[in-house]
């Protein structure tokens, strides 16, 4: 698996009102936005929590959750105190979590703008989608790169089945590797299938809740942020 992939960012279109501009209104540089998608229960919220704990000392971070029904994900993050409350916001998705991150990103863009308005300059905004299926992907108007989180307990054939999340995400996280022996998942086959499906895009096999498990994901984000900063300079 390899972590280099500098071709992550969409062209910085100069139209100020759209989401894919690299600038906030007023010409200030905006934060890097990373989307996290994946099926229900694969560990998206745990990944966000672990990333916040790992990166919050070095980066100014905020989180947008797209809860399907309640504010449960946002409230989990608040309860775990991974970030101060003002850095976490939730948007409702009208029973269509994939619409809110792909077809009509208005509410998420508004949440992102509000966070930047209230908190000042941010380095990183993590946008967690509501748990959905394997076709959920983020619009380039909303995020600069996206992570897709699946887990070994969801079936070791998911990488082989593919789908837009598995094949096109900028980073594929195969989570809960510690459970592989218990659920009879073949990690090597998952890694092989992922590599076959994903051209040269990177894949990480890890267990984000175990000590150090988030490090490869955090390192990938640091690299994206370095690219983003260089790209904007």
């Amino acid at each position: 698996m390899h972590l280099q992939h500098s071709d992550t960012f969409p062209d910085g279109h100069p139209h100020g009102s759209g989401g894919s501009s690299g600038e906030r209104p007023g010409g200030r540089h905006r934060a890097l936005r990373i989307g996290l998608g994946g099926p229900v229960g694969s560990g998206k919220t745990a990944t966000v929590a672990a990333l916040c704990r790992t990166l919050r000392e070095e980066l100014s971070i905020a989180v947008v959750t797209n809860d399907i029904y309640t504010r449960e994900d946002a409230e989990f993050l608040l309860r775990e105190a991974v970030l101060p409350a003002e850095r976490i916001t939730a948007v409702q998705t009208g029973a269509c979590p994939h619409t809110a991150i792909r077809d009509d990103i208005s509410a998420n863009l508004e949440a992102v703008e509000d966070l930047e308005d209230h908190l000042g300059t941010l380095d990183l905004i993590l946008i967690e989608s509501g748990g959905d299926n394997l076709t959920a992907t983020f619009s380039k108007g909303l995020v600069d790169a996206q992570i897709f989180v699946i887990d070994v307990a969801g079936g070791d054939d998911i990488p082989r089945k593919g789908g837009p999340g598995v094949t096109t995400s900028d980073l594929l996280v195969i989570n809960k590797t510690d459970l592989a022996p218990h659920v009879g998942a073949d990690l090597q086959a998952m890694a092989r299938d992922a590599e076959a499906q994903r051209d040269r895009l990177p894949t990480v096999l890890t267990a984000v809740k175990t000590p150090g498990g988030i490090i490869p994901v955090a390192d990938w984000i640091r690299a994206r942020l370095a690219d983003w900063t260089a790209h904007a300079a």
Binding site: V91, Q92, T93, G94, C96, T99, A100, D103, D104, I105, S106, A107, E110
Partner: peptide, 12 residues
């Protein structure tokens, strides 16, 4: 209804 102006998340 597909005009991307946030309406999908509102039930009126």
């Amino acid at each position: 209804g597909r005009f991307p102006a946030g309406g999908h998340a509102h039930s009126g």
